[in-house]
Design a protein around this nucleic acid. Structure first.
Lengths: 255, 255
DNA sequence: GTCACCGCATGAAGATCCGCATGAAGATCC
DNA sequence: GGATCTTCATGCGGATCTTCATGCGGTGAC
């Protein structure tokens, strides 16, 4: 039996909880190893993931990655399947030999999905196709860590802000007990807002986070999608999505 | 106050339940010994089974397997009948000598002589022909463990989601008291969905899990079989199989 | 105080594209 | 030969993004 109270607790303690989610049993931050030979991408990913509160280390090829895995013992690995010196499957095999339990998130080109990725998600790993959005990578990494750490007792895929609920696993969204259907982009935008409640997010930030890194369009798509969200979430209720002129948007419980 | 009870309960118990099934009487995880000389297959199996929560050890030939059995004392053995150094029958005999009670799941080529396999499985063991799907191996292993551990009190082969019931042993499926006939593939797909209720499963995940590991076809077979399932399960009723555009599919009780 | 401007909200229309559902034919297995 | 499985092909509609237009409100210039 669960009441909204517990959810609200989840929301209000979000900062503390967030940190709890990001800590290993011994209290040190969760470690994520980023492996990509494209320096600018590795840089982008490292920045974004570090901002999530994780301890990041980046390597550019399979050999270095395996060494890092052995010595540094990360809690998760973000692995480009196209590396200069080694096949993705080979890296995975040796990685597993070294760290049997560590979850892996693969990065792969869109058109390469069919040939070599088969079987990679069978062990509970996951993959993301390029070009991706940072939100997607972060969300999937969190999902992997959540499932891997389930044995340690922390598993919560529910986000809550006021009476607004979002389940990252089922992609369901409710407001005040009523289910709301969102499109993929709307969902990612809302998730980003809800992961940063009461904080102003600029349109640029939102674009960089929610849209693919190679998105070339105009920034007013953000305005458009905010308006979509308002229509579905705030319609006829106390608004939770607020505009800060000249600054950006934020979400917060009515008040 | 929100009526999320059923959902929250499901979510919270899924982990606990899974774990209960996977523990030996002394609280340590169930041990499964994987014996296959094909490294990539052993790798794939180890991945998938480890993800199920079992403790896995892999060996590549009969001699090593017997040593592992003696020292590590697994709760079940996954045994390829074609090994480089030893006949399957021989391995089984010596294994029985070492661990009389342990259930064995044989892996065999499709064209292998049927009667010999039948002889092998006489003692309550089971077998799977290559190429197999991971769902099938996992399900049969679970069945073997269930029967072997029945004395320990845990035996539940029924999956339920809403008014939809699936019996993993008899392969019977009912919805609202009415029996539904499914083909083999449809059954495996439904089982996979029902073992992960309220969770979005991507088409790739489903392919990796439900279809054979050597399947080379396109991902739209998944769409096709989803549509078959819908026809049989959701026909004229409140739909339980839902599409999450751009994400995948999930099953959940009407709501 | 008045006026012009700028940032933002929203609507509408439309083009494109992708995801998906489904029908039907071919292949395979028992 | 019938059930089952798979591939092929087609069509629909949803989703995304662009563009244009209108309106609102706050802000600063004067």
């Amino acid at each position: 039996m669960v009441s909204l109270d517990s959810m609200t607790v989840t929301a209000s303690t979000s900062t503390a909880k967030k940190r709890a989610e990001l800590l290993r049993p011994d209290g040190s931050p969760v470690r994520v190893l980023v492996v990509d030979d494209e320096a600018s991408l590795a840089e982008l990913l490292s920045l974004a993931l570090r901002y999530e509160g994780w301890d990041i280390r980046a390597e550019g090829d399979g050999t270095a990655a395996l060494r890092a895995a052995r010595e540094w013992r990360p809690d998760a690995v973000l692995l480009d399947v196209m590396l200069p010196d080694m096949d993705g499957l080979t890296v995975l095999g040796r990685l597993r030999h070294e760290l049997p339990e560590v979850p892996v998130l693969f990065l792969t080109a869109k058109d390469a999905v069919e040939d070599r990725i088969a079987g990679l998600t069978a062990g509970g790993d996951d993959y993301v196709t390029k070009p991706f959005s940072l939100e997607e990578v972060v969300a999937r990494l969190r999902g992997l860590l959540r499932r891997a750490g389930a044995a340690a007792g922390r598993s919560e895929s529910l986000l809550a802000v006021g009476d607004l609920l979002l389940d990252e696993e089922s992609h369901d969204v409710w407001r005040g007990g009523q289910e709301i259907h969102l499109t993929a982009t709307e969902f990612e935008l809302l998730r980003y807002l809800m992961r940063n409640p009461r904080r102003v997010l600029s349109k640029t930030q939102i674009l960089d986070r929610v849209w693919s890194y190679d998105f070339g369009g105009q920034a007013n798509v953000v305005e458009l999608y905010i308006s979509y969200l308002r229509r579905k979430i705030d319609a006829g209720r106390a608004p939770m999505i607020h505009t800060r002129r000249g600054a950006g948007y934020l979400i917060k419980p009515g008040g």
